[in-house]
Design a protein around this nucleic acid. Structure first.
Lengths: 192, 192
DNA sequence: TCCTCATATGTCAATATTGACATATGCCCG
DNA sequence: CGGGCATATGTCAATATTGACATATGAGGA
């Protein structure tokens, strides 16, 4: 018997989470998952359309066809009750330790191979990148904060708020860490 | 003309970073990359052996065969000067924004679909997982801190220290965030 | 002595992900 | 009116990653 929490792939659960909030066509799903701002999984449309078909075949989502512009008809997808149940089961399911795969830290791990000046320059670039993402997170949080739904645990905006808060905290920490690294390089330079 | 910083894949640079620190056979590389503790990329041996062959064919690493036990001879890999140069170029190369792909936050984004009690229980499990990783990072940092090399930017231990520091800061932040989330659920319960 | 585990290197099929190619319409701007 | 862009849905080849299968030896414990 398959694990009930394994009704689909990670990508499938990402899409289900999106459709649980509101019905969308594939293009809208793809738009939402193109940039990870305020969201924590990305995918291209070439992955999304086949996955929507699989979810449809498994009965986790259903669609209605809307005739409109374009070479093919538009399909509006909605999550089913089965899909809702599968999503909820996955959310509280077992946590398998996820592999840490961080390209930024992988670079820093080999930073001893380059000249200190170039290293500090790299850290400054990382810092700028974190700052720009932080700003976008702050904007997104400000946008939803006015809605009273953000304080109701059964409202999607509550979940949006707590994940955004996590993003904001982690980017702030990354910025502090970058400043700390620059200070470490400066201290080493002093000792020379 | 190909980007000089694109001499190999991300996995290839992870392996080069390892071999720049010390010569290893494939098995040792695989051991090191099995768990991400103090390191930030993971891979299985089935990925590593073919990648080592590719790196060897590109001249970024070289190997000597050591006859020993086992069905096949042991190969000891060492980074070449070309490999060192490619690694250093990659370290300071352009930063393409990396996709955020966080399964934990993806779950939390759909946490509004489950009962608050189950949600709080999930947050507590996340918290325990972060705490255990934090403890291992702290142990690793303590192990290397005695070495004077940790303060020299051209020593690999300097890089190990700053990446570990990043891991420690990010896990501490995650723990604070988990406590904050539990408080948010408690506050909502109060208002009910 | 037998069983298990660590050492050591590989292949292979399945799945996941990326990037390019493909197509057709409506809208806006110059 | 022509060109580019957003809308909208797909396929396909290449690469990345996982998990299973395969093999052989030496060391240590039951």
């Amino acid at each position: 018997m398959p694990d009930p929490a394994a009704a689909t792939s990670n990508l499938g659960f990402a899409i289900l989470g999106l459709l649980a909030r509101r019905a969308c066509n594939g293009y809208e799903v793809a738009q939402r998952m193109r940039q990870p701002i305020g969201y924590f999984w990305t995918a291209r449309h070439s992955q999304i359309y086949p996955e929507l078909n699989r979810l449809d075949a498994s009965g986790l989502v259903e669609h209605e066809v809307i005739e409109g512009a374009g070479p093919r008809p538009t399909k509006r997808y909605r999550i089913t009750e089965t899909g809702q149940a599968a999503l909820a089961a996955w959310v509280v399911g077992d946590l398998e330790p996820q592999p840490v795969r961080d390209l930024e830290v992988l670079r820093l791990w080999s930073i001893w191979t380059v000249a200190p000046a170039a290293a500090v320059e790299l850290v400054s670039r990382l810092e700028a990148a974190h700052r720009s993402v932080l700003d976008r997170y702050l904007d997104e949080l400000a946008e939803i904060s006015g809605d009273p739904g953000v304080r109701d645990p059964s409202n999607p905006l509550f979940a949006s708020r707590i994940t955004l808060e996590g993003g904001i905290r982690s980017r702030r920490t990354a910025l502090e860490w970058c400043a700390w690294m620059r200070a470490e390089f400066a201290a080493a330079e002093q000792r020379r």
